[in-house]
């Protein structure tokens, strides 16, 4: 196909011209996705500047005073809310998820394994608002009417424990899927040689499979944690949303994402409020980024170590 004469690439064939234009366009697209990440970070930093310049970053992070109308923008109780609910969720979710993944992969028959994996895969796609709804129908009444009375405590049920329980059910499929994938990558010969030496199945799992799989399993848990840190809707629906440091699991918490979701978009008249919410988004982003980048580095070094040993 001859080029139209107005195009100033006389020496180029149509094919080469197309190639160069495609290359340029694709380059722009690739630059664009880097630009998104950078501009989110820069935008949040710049927009939150008024509040962290006036109140200082440690002052904001360590203060518990949340009183926007009088200029109190302490983030500590929200950060603690996020940290505690994430921790609780991981403690509840990780051990059973890992054990169950090992069971499906190393013990169960192939049929059960396929069925289980399909089910978990489907459940991993369920949106968080449905988990939140289920939290309201099932978990909150369970905590209010059965678990808390067993300890002699009165609670509305909208509390740290409910929040942790809902989050844990949410991240179980995430962790399990990745652990199963990791176990898939371990060569069968290793298991066979261990079993042939007379080891029991659990000994094989403990000494052979786990030794190779542990970096992968740790990243699976980390993926679950990073999902739990940023989860908004489910948390918003069951956490109770009271800005205070909880003294027991039966007290409400107010994680960072819930703070943003509840207040962003309607804080026009209070000075610095907008900036403070941007700062809370920045803190949330920083928590997730530090975690993910740390994981990235860990995965690289761990894989390298695994190859050399």
């Amino acid at each position: 196909m001859p080029l139209p004469s107005f195009i100033p690439f006389k020496g180029l064939s149509a094919g080469k011209f197309k190639n160069i234009s495609a290359r340029t366009l694709f380059l722009i697209a690739a630059l664009f996705i880097n630009f998104i990440l950078l501009s989110i970070i820069i935008w949040l930093t710049v927009k939150s500047a008024p509040v962290w310049v006036e109140k200082s970053i440690p002052g904001l992070l360590l203060s518990q005073v949340w009183f926007p109308a009088r200029g109190g923008f302490g983030m500590f109780s929200f950060i603690i809310g996020t940290v505690l609910s994430t921790l609780l969720a991981v403690i509840l979710a990780a051990p059973p998820a890992i054990l169950s993944a090992i069971y499906l992969h190393e013990y169960a028959s192939k049929k059960i394994m396929t069925a289980g994996r399909t089910l978990i895969d489907l459940l991993a796609g369920i949106p968080s608002v449905v988990f939140g709804l289920w939290g309201i129908i099932t978990v909150v009444p369970l905590v209010r009417n059965h678990i808390a009375p067993a300890f002699g405590i009165n609670t509305t049920g909208y509390c740290l424990l409910s929040c942790g329980l809902v989050l844990s059910i949410m991240i179980v499929p995430v962790i399990m899927l990745m652990v199963i994938e990791v176990l898939d990558g371990i060569p069968n010969e290793l298991r066979e040689s261990s079993l042939a030496l007379g080891a029991t199945r659990w000994q094989t799992v403990k000494h052979v499979v786990m030794r190779m799989a542990y970096p992968g399993i740790l990243s699976a848990v980390a993926l679950g944690i990073s999902r739990a840190i940023g989860e908004t809707m489910a948390v918003l629906m069951v956490a109770g949303n009271v800005p205070a440091v909880p003294s027991s699991v039966f007290e409400p918490v107010y994680p960072l994402p819930a703070l943003i979701a509840n207040n962003y978009g309607e804080m026009l008249s209070i000075p610095l409020y907008d900036s403070a919410l941007m700062f809370s988004a920045l803190v949330l982003l920083a928590m997730v980024l530090v975690f993910n980048i740390g994981l990235h580095i860990f995965k690289k070094t761990a894989r390298y170590g695994g190859q050399t040993s």
Binding site: W43, G230, I260, L277, A281, L284, V288, F291
Partner: peptide
């Protein structure tokens, strides 16, 4: 890995 609420704010 960026939480969806951050995309919402941005």
């Amino acid at each position: 890995g960026v939480p969806s609420i951050i995309f919402g704010v941005f």
